[in-house]
Design a protein around this nucleic acid. Structure first.
Lengths: 168, 168
DNA sequence: TTTTTATGTCAGCCATGTTGACATATCTCA
DNA sequence: TGAGATATGTCAACATGGCTGACATAAAAA
């Protein structure tokens, strides 16, 4: 892909003038748009939005998660988190228990209802993911996972991958 | 991965109870989060947000795009689009010309400044994408592209893929 | 005991999505 | 030609989910 079509009279390489993978950039946009679109419709029935979904998802996947850990995952402010978390607790989808070791901390858990909703949403997304996998071939899962991991900030990557493996 | 560990006494399959690819679901979240994070910092210097970026990007990639086509791509309302588009036009990054065939239409074009900004942002994202590609191996690009295409709504897919090819 | 840490909360702002209503110019069709 | 459909623009109001800054409390740590 580098020197395939030598351009007439040009410098060794204009840094990265035009090896921009526009196709992947746009596919990522379209794919993500539809990927998060599925749950949105269901969440609307509960008067929840995407923010609620993200919180519920990670609480369900990482039982006992603390507020600080959740903030680190979502990379939003505690005020933003609190708004949706409070609603999830008040409506009985998430439980917030005082930490046993450190009583300042809160350990978050999905309730039965929370678990059910989270799983329902995850299955919806799974359907789409597995359909895509069926098109490309199942061996693509591994490749795509490593590719997506490669898109994560290098500084974050180790931590994220560790938390993925741990909760699996 | 299907029947590897046969479960003792269970029905043929509970529909899709637990073959949920949580790893991919979460990787998609983290990857997209960081992928759109890069441009955000630059856009802030221009008092632009993500919405401006998306508009500028597609206008630059599809010169002469009409309002209706852009709305179809972004899947937002014309009021939402108009707010950011107006700003892009007023600040000289996008030009809106009356259609030649159909004078009701507007054909959108990036100005020189608009093109420069769009390319700069695309190169930033390209850096990340190419870094990920370098990790997985260049042959992954093809696989990932087909996978991401598979995530797009089937009803939309043909149209989207057509527009990608056309603008390449 | 003082300080730091983990969390909660109030108040207000901003960006970007939404709906609904309505205006204008232009095109199309009977 | 005249009626209706179409493409766009715009006003107003509202919802969601980010943000900053300030301040409060309880518990841990120094």
């Amino acid at each position: 892909m580098s020197d395939t079509h030598a351009r007439a009279t040009e410098a060794p390489r204009p840094a990265s003038a035009e090896d921009v993978p526009y196709e992947l950039i746009e596919l990522l946009f379209f794919a993500y748009r539809d990927f998060v679109g599925d749950p949105d419709r269901i969440l609307a029935d509960y008067n929840f939005g995407r923010a609620h979904h993200r919180v519920l998802h990670f609480v369900q996947r990482r039982p006992g998660l603390t507020i600080a850990e959740l903030l680190d995952i979502l990379q939003i402010t505690k005020q933003s988190l609190n708004r949706v978390l409070k609603e999830l607790v008040e409506t009985g989808f998430v439980e917030s228990r005082m930490g046993t070791q450190d009583k300042r901390q809160r350990n978050l858990h999905a309730t039965t209802a929370g678990r059910e909703l989270a799983v329902r949403l995850a299955q919806l997304q799974a359907k789409r993911i597995n359909a895509a996998l069926a098109i490309v071939g199942p061996e693509a899962g591994e490749v795509v996972a490593r590719y997506l991991a490669g898109l994560i900030d290098p500084a974050e990557r180790r931590k994220v991958l560790g938390s993925l493996a741990g909760s699996d």
